[in-house]
Amino acid sequence: MQWRNEQLFHLRQVKPLTEKDQENYFRNVVAKLFEQEKPNQLLFSYLKNNECIGYGGLVHINWFDKNAEISFIMKTELEKNEFKKNWKIYLNLLEKMAFEELMLHKIYTYAFDLRPLLYEVLEEFGYLKDAVLKDHCLFNGEYKDVIIHSKIKYL
C-alpha cells in the first residue's frame, strides 16, 4: 500500500489507498483468486534475502487468447539505483512462468509515457513496442501517451 501510494504517478490508481481499501482488496479480490482454476491475475512477492522488495505478476489474464499484462512495483527507494537490475531479474522469472508453466502466447506492458528506463529494459529483453496510445490518460491535468510493449512466445 505504501509503495503504491508513493508511486501514484505511474499507476492506474486514481487516489491513495487507505488501510480499509487494502483490506477490502485482499478480502474481496485476492483471497478469491486462490479458489479459481483460471484466475484473472496471479500475484507474487518479490524477495531479496527473505525481505519483500516488490510484488507483481500477471494481470488481466485472458486464458482463451493466452495473453496477460505484466505488473510490477518495487520498494520506492530502490527505483533510483536498482530499477533496471530488479526489472531484469523480475522479467526473467516472470517469463519462465508465463511461457513455460502457464503456456501463455503473449505478455505485455501498459505504461504511461514517463518511464524511459522501463522501455530500455523491455527492449533489451526482446519486447517490441506494439503501440503508442496518444493522449490516452489524464495525469496532473496533462494528457499522457500510453506505450504498450509485448513479447510473444515463439516455438
Rank of each mutant, 00 (worst) to 15 (best):
E35A: 09
I107P: 11
Y110Q: 08
I148C: 08
Y90G: 00
N86W: 09
W3S: 02
D145R: 04
L91M: 00
G57M: 07
N140F: 05
A68P: 10
S150N: 07
R115L: 15
V29S: 14
A68Y: 04
M97P: 00
Y108H: 13
Y108I: 04
D145S: 11
A98V: 02
M74I: 11
I89C: 04
Q36C: 03
K84P: 01
N86M: 02
D113W: 10
F64V: 15
L43H: 02
K48S: 14
A98K: 00
V59E: 07
V30Q: 05
I147Q: 05
R4A: 13
F34E: 15
G54S: 06
D135E: 15
Y108V: 08
K144D: 09
L47N: 14
K106E: 13
L114G: 11
K134C: 05
H149L: 05
M1R: 00
Q7E: 08
Y119L: 09
Y25M: 06
Y108R: 13
L138P: 02
Y127Q: 08
K48I: 06
L128N: 12
E101S: 13
G54N: 11
E79G: 02
L58W: 09
G56K: 06
K80A: 11
K144F: 14
L117T: 09
S150P: 10
L104W: 07
I147P: 11
G141S: 08
G126Y: 02
L118V: 07
K96S: 12
K134I: 04
P16D: 08
I147R: 11
H149D: 03
E51D: 10
P39W: 00
F139R: 13
I148W: 05
K129M: 13
N92D: 09
V30C: 00
C137P: 02
E19C: 08
K84H: 00
N24F: 11
K88P: 00
L104Y: 07
R115S: 15
E6F: 03
L33F: 01
K88G: 00
S45P: 04
I70Q: 01
L17E: 14
Q2T: 07
E69D: 07
Q2Y: 12
L104D: 06
L43S: 04
C137W: 05
K153M: 00
Q22D: 13
I107N: 15
N24T: 04
L118P: 03
E124N: 13
W3Y: 02
I61Y: 02
E142G: 02
H10P: 03
N62T: 03
E100A: 01
S71L: 04
E37H: 14
F125N: 12
L8K: 07
W87D: 00
D65Y: 10
K88I: 00
F125V: 01
V132T: 14
T109R: 05
D21Y: 01
G56Q: 03
K48C: 09
E79T: 09
K32D: 10
E142M: 11
L138K: 05
I70M: 09
L33T: 12
Y108D: 12
L93C: 06
L78C: 06
L11H: 06
F9T: 12
E101T: 13
F139D: 14
L94N: 01
N62A: 07
F125M: 10
N49A: 03
Q36T: 03
Q13G: 03
P116S: 05
Q13E: 10
E124C: 08
G126L: 09
G126W: 07
W63V: 02
L58V: 05
D113V: 13
T18Q: 10
E120P: 04
Y90W: 15
A98N: 01
Q22S: 11
C52I: 12
N5T: 03
E82W: 14
E142Q: 12
